[in-house]
């Protein structure tokens, strides 16, 4: 068996999910005695290739081409597909980043293959790969297998593997090989322009020791005041899940999650937040997580230290009352 693990960089900086996928690939390679090659696409990436070659992989393959400097779905698909056709791996593993979700389905489909995206784990069972991915917003999991012959393409969700478990080589470095990329400007139909951030962040939630965060369970904009009052009493900052910011009930710079801020306060109070992975990646480093949710099966309880199953409109006023007027 042969596995390609695709790393990701932008403007010379690693996407940290790279290491999680490499861990998944290393562990699977060990289990199946497979050959593992790390792959990186970009322009002028020899230095990053060196870094990869210190990890436990049999080879580092670089798709190094001026037209791969900025990500495009066409460019990355053509380059990776060329490599897959040349090196015939059984499995291509990628980190489930915003970039990967933009091209991996296309890469697989262009070869008539399937892409199993956003997996949270895998099992090697009776000589076949069983992938687990979430459905129904994390309320259920599905075991998924590939049908038909390889190559198979899959990606892993943020947090599915621990990046600090990446195995380094005991000595020396893996060979680094530059792969010929056959890519012409006219094959790329999209033109990436500048990257930017919206107006400067007014609040820096990363410094807040306590965060009270509201989700769609808060129901209406007027009810935010309730959470705000609680935040004041505990000396915390107010934050929110995406739908609350989408509605404009709180400004974007208070959004926690993959598209917003990543925080690690000592206390994170999640009120009426379901715990979708895109939210959880932004707060799972919190020391203590408290979740108030009326649904006992809400995924937020998977990462909560203290859980209260109940109506936040009963629980939060009770918390406020208790803080204002402590009663034994």
């Amino acid at each position: 068996m042969k596995i390609l693990a695709v790393a990701e960089q932008r403007q010379g900086k690693w996407n940290p999910l790279t290491w999680e996928t490499l861990v998944a690939a290393q562990q699977l390679a060990e289990k199946t005695s497979a050959e593992l090659c790390a792959v990186l696409a970009g322009s002028d990436i020899a230095g990053l290739g060196e870094e990869l070659s210190a990890r436990r992989v049999s080879e580092v393959l670089l798709l190094d081409h001026p037209l791969l400097e900025s990500y495009t779905a066409d460019g990355f698909t053509i380059a990776l597909r060329g490599l897959v056709e040349q090196s015939s791996p059984d499995l291509v593993l990628l980190p489930h980043t915003y970039q990967v979700r933009d091209f991996a389905p296309k890469l697989a489909a262009s070869m008539g293959k399937g892409f199993v995206g956003d997996c949270v784990g895998y099992r090697w069972e009776a000589d076949r790969l069983v992938l687990t991915r979430q459905m129904f917003q994390g309320r259920a999991n599905a075991d998924v297998t590939f049908a038909g012959p390889p190559p198979w393409v899959a990606s892993f969700q943020a947090g599915a593997f621990r990046p600090d478990q990446v195995a380094r080589r005991e000595s020396g470095q893996a060979p680094v090989r530059k792969i010929d990329v056959d890519l012409k400007p006219e094959q790329i139909r999209t033109r990436p322009l500048e990257t930017f951030r919206e107006a400067r962040q007014a609040v820096d939630l990363t410094e807040a020791p306590i965060i009270v965060s509201v989700g769609r369970g808060i129901k209406e904009q007027a009810n935010i005041a309730l959470a705000e009052k609680l935040a004041k009493l505990v000396g915390g900052e107010l934050a929110a899940s995406r739908p609350i910011c989408d509605e404009g009930w709180l400004p974007m710079d208070r959004q926690i999650g993959s598209s917003g801020q990543t925080v690690a306060p000592k206390l994170y109070l999640a009120l009426g937040i379901s715990g979708a992975i895109q939210h959880v990646v932004g707060m799972k480093g919190s020391r203590t997580v408290v979740a108030v949710n009326k649904d006992r099966n809400a995924p937020i309880f998977e990462i909560a230290d203290y859980g209260i199953v109940g109506d936040l409109f009963e629980i939060v006023p009770a918390l406020i009352a208790q803080l204002e007027n402590p009663q034994p």
């Binding site: 697989a108 008539g112 293959k113 399937g114 199993v116 069983v130 459905m135 309320r139 259920a140 999991n141 599905a142 075991d143 998924v144 297998t145 590939f146 049908a147 038909g148 979740a291 099966n297 309880f301 998977e302 990462i303 909560a304 230290d305 203290y306 859980g307 209260i308 199953v309």
Partner: peptide
């Protein structure tokens, strides 16, 4: 098909949450 859902299930909780 290129992939098959074998089964769906409610995930086992792995973290110990203290429910109040």
């Amino acid at each position: 098909p290129t992939q098959t859902i074998e089964r769906i299930f409610v995930p086992q909780k792995t973290k110990h949450t203290e429910f109040l």
